Simulated assay, not measured.
Amino acid sequence: MSDTVTVHGFSPSGNCHKVRLLLEQLGRPYRWVETRSDQGATRTPAFLALNPNAKVPVLVREDGAVLTESNAMLCWLAEGSAFLPADAWARAQALSWMFFEQYSHEPYVAVARFICGWTPLDSPRRADLPRLRERAHAALAVMERHLASHAWFTGEAYGIADIALFAYTAVADEGGVSLARYPAINDWLARVRGTPRFIGLPDNDADVRARLAASA
């Protein structure tokens, strides 16, 4: 696959960053369309025609075909590359971690970060933070146990399950979820950051940084 894909995404979003990181590491040409979901950009008629679910990221091929859901994009983009195991069992293991990320990790780690950074300081949603942080630590404990005896989540080598789990784990502290008690996770994060063509999440804008600081 060498055609240029277009990705509609919000740069501070971990789900969007997953796709951008893999594209960079594949060296694949792409066009990024910054889509401020926090300012209603995913609710316009033009965007809803691409994704009626009103969420980013959205990937569009040159032929106009549309793909939604970040982990589905990772699987499609990684097909035939070293980022996705060729062995069926190893691939299933990688996919199991990607399902874990969306069901047991992202709903707590990412949502805590969202509430801290993108909701008003008096938002009633902040009452959910203790529960979200508790569940986030439960997910991180599962990851820590795996990483105590494995270097990666995609199998023997770095790949898309690592990219999927890295995105929000790397910024867990922005939701008040400290990584201090997870040495294996911190070592893994460093390994991911050391992979070729790695790019990190961009800094949040000033108002988001202020809310994150106040929520710490």
Rank of each mutant, 00 (worst) to 15 (best):
residue 165 L to E: 01
residue 121 L to Q: 08
residue 176 G to E: 02
residue 147 L to Y: 12
residue 108 Y to A: 15
residue 85 P to W: 01
residue 146 H to C: 09
residue 96 S to C: 03
residue 83 F to E: 00
residue 97 W to A: 00
residue 78 A to F: 09
residue 203 D to Y: 00
residue 20 R to Y: 01
residue 210 A to I: 06
residue 40 G to S: 14
residue 115 I to Q: 00
residue 86 A to I: 06
residue 145 R to C: 15
residue 139 A to R: 14
residue 79 E to G: 03
residue 96 S to M: 08
residue 128 D to L: 14
residue 63 D to C: 07
residue 208 V to M: 03
residue 73 M to Q: 14
residue 84 L to Y: 12
residue 163 I to D: 01
residue 63 D to L: 10
residue 170 A to C: 06
residue 183 P to V: 14
residue 181 R to W: 02
residue 16 C to T: 15
residue 204 N to I: 01
residue 211 R to V: 13
residue 193 R to Q: 15
residue 16 C to I: 11
residue 34 E to Y: 02
residue 95 L to F: 10
residue 80 G to K: 03
residue 163 I to F: 01
residue 164 A to L: 03
residue 5 V to C: 08
residue 2 S to V: 04
residue 71 N to E: 03
residue 184 A to D: 12
residue 114 F to R: 11
residue 87 D to H: 09
residue 209 R to L: 15
residue 149 S to G: 15
residue 67 L to V: 02
residue 37 S to I: 15
residue 155 G to Q: 03
residue 112 A to M: 04
residue 36 R to S: 11
residue 186 N to G: 12
residue 188 W to N: 01
residue 200 G to N: 10
residue 21 L to V: 14
residue 112 A to F: 03
residue 65 A to M: 01
residue 127 A to T: 07
residue 39 Q to F: 01
residue 216 A to N: 15
residue 31 R to H: 14
residue 85 P to Y: 00
residue 120 P to Q: 07
residue 11 S to F: 06
residue 110 A to S: 11
residue 117 G to Y: 04
residue 206 A to G: 04
residue 135 R to L: 11
residue 5 V to E: 06
residue 91 R to T: 00
residue 203 D to K: 07
residue 105 H to Y: 05
residue 54 A to W: 07
residue 126 R to E: 07
residue 72 A to F: 03
residue 23 L to S: 13
